[in-house]
Nucleic acid binder design. Structure first.
Length: 457
RNA sequence: GGCCGGUUGGCAGAGUGGCUCAUGCAGAGGACUGCAAAUCCUUGUACAUCGGUUCAAUUCCGGUACCGGCCUCCA
């Protein structure tokens, strides 16, 4: 299966050819752990989770290495520490755990590596040394800065010329910078700030440095895919390129740059700084995590995505439909199967998840219409195998509809027995009354030839 | 201001130089059902705007309008 991806580097869709098919390597920028993650922080990992699943399917799970970092040294964390009095360690550990929990709920597979910046300080220092040696960096007032003028192609990823960058620049220009666009590789820390000893004194790394250092260490100086949110293209990814290419002349850094579109609220980008954000855990109080995941996948990853609670409810309804199809064949043996090739083809075409989902609807329809057990077995297996590529429909259908509360289930079963007796006595008024009463509690009854079943609304 | 991207039916959202047709939700009609629910069948409504290329454009090219992203920390 030929995968194609939209490559930001050339602003077009390209056929994906791995450098080494026995080890396909992908790096995606992860969160800075200073606060609970919002929906925007979830959309990107979900998008790349689908790519990770697809790569594993096409090249084999053991032939893909996926790295997603954790930024645990940053001025935002420092500010949080000043605000709350909590220790840096406490803040980063707690936030990291929240993030991992959120990702697990969204059925995001764990990457092969989740490196933390603070564990790669030595590599970062080595990288800075290399840049100084190669004449691409300079020291100024305790800082080490990247010298953008030393790199002829600077700006090639984001498609900016130096002139453009300076024209609209709102950069705060420190007077020790040779060029206002020069960015920090290493900066000094005061004794009360987090820091490490380095050839340039006690200090800490600039933000861009960590991704260059960690990707190089874990994936090599040239690897296949580098991903992240589209807001990282400039300056973060541009500067990563600059660091890595200048530190390792002759290497290519990342061959394919893949960026996911921003998550919007009311037509405006969701962000912490604008204050228009929803936290993942607060949204998950209103709908299952799987519905949120499906909602993200219902728009192409590259497009901006406008979040609404109506959309979330619709995603929930779509899952109800899928799980209904699975529920009616719960007694049918679950066997292994290959995913539907149209689903694979849709995902291989620059991760067209909306198209893949439309095929999933067809597969569910086939399952609903299957008249023999053999046909049901096959349709069920195909639906499940296809859904797995998208990371959905992993739950037990009964649990999806009923939740896990045994006492409540026993109460409802008793009511159903009561209603069955009324129905047998043709007392439909009583039967309907019982049904209405349960409905008011959010319990929907369904009469089938095999008896009455129930689910939560 | 510079650089990108978008504008598809009531809503969400794919896609295509011509074909009967995305798909889902909502709407209408029907089957099934004691009535429902679930499911199945049938069904209506669309390609921002103005030009150009073409036998043919929603689809390609250019202009306009509107919306959004980046240019500052940001997934």
């Amino acid at each position: 299966m030929q995968i194609s991806l939209y490559n930001t580097l050339r602003r077009r869709k390209e056929e994906f050819t791995p450098i080494d098919a026995s080890n396909v390597r992908m790096y995606v920028c992860g969160p800075t752990v200073y606060d609970r993650a919002h929906l925007g922080n979830a959309k990107t990992p979900v998008a790349f989770d689908v790519l990770y699943r697809l790569l594993r399917y096409v090249y084999g799970p053991e032939h893909v290495t996926y790295v997603s970092n954790i930024t645990d040294v940053d001025d935002k964390i420092l500010n949080k520490h000043k605000e709350t009095g909590k220790s840096i360690r406490e803040i980063t550990e707690e936030t990291y755990q929240w993030y991992i929990d959120d990702m697990a709920k969204l059925n995001v597979l764990a990457p092969n590596y989740r490196p933390r910046a603070t564990e790669y300080i030595d590599e970062m220092i080595e990288l800075v040394k290399l840049l100084l040696q190669n004449g691409h960096a300079y020291e100024a007032e305790g800082h080490v800065l990247f010298d953008v003028d030393s790199m002829p192609g600077y700006g090639y990823l984001s498609g900016r010329s130096m002139k453009e960058m300076l024209a609209g620049a709102r950069i705060e220009v420190a007077d020790y910078k040779k060029n206002p666009a020069d960015f920090i590789l290493w900066k000094p820390s005061s004794p009360d700030q987090p820091g490490w000893d380095s050839p340039w004194g006690y200090g800490r790394p600039g933000w861009h440095l960590e991704c260059s250092a960690m990707s190089s260490k874990l994936l090599g100086n040239t690897f296949d895919i580098h991903g992240g949110g589209s807001d990282l293209i400039f300056p973060h990814h541009e500067n990563e390129c600059a660091q890595s290419l200048c530190a390792h002349p002759g290497e290519k850094f990342a061959k394919y740059w893949v960026h996911s579109g921003m998550l919007m609220v009311d037509g405006v980008k969701m962000s912490k700084s604008l204050g228009n954000f929803y936290l993942i855990d607060e949204v998950l109080e209103k709908a299952p995590a799987e519905a949120l995941r499906l909602l993200f996948l219902s728009t192409h990853y590259h497009q901006p995505f406008n979040f609404t609670f109506e959309g979330l409810n619709q995603a929930k309804a779509t899952l109800d439909k899928f799980y209904n199809a699975l529920l009616r064949v719960k007694e049918v043996e679950t066997v292994k199967a290959e995913p539907d090739e149209r689903v694979v083809a849709a995902l291989a075409d620059d991760m067209n998840t909306p198209l893949a989902l439309s095929h999933l609807h067809e597969l569910a329809n086939i399952l609903n219409k299957a008249s023999t057990v053999e046909a049901q077995k096959e349709a069920k297996a195909r639906l499940l195998a296809s859904a797995e590529l998208l990371g959905i429909l992993w739950q037990d259908p009964e649990k999806w509809f009923k939740g896990g509360n045994d006492d409540e289930a026993a109460m409802i079963e008793a009511k159903i027995a009561e209603r069955a007796a009324a129905k047998k006595a043709k007392d439909y008024a009583l039967a309907d009354k019982i049904r209405e009463k349960l409905k008011a509690q959010g319990i929907i009854l369904e009469d089938t030839p095999q008896g009455t079943t129930w689910k939560k609304a």
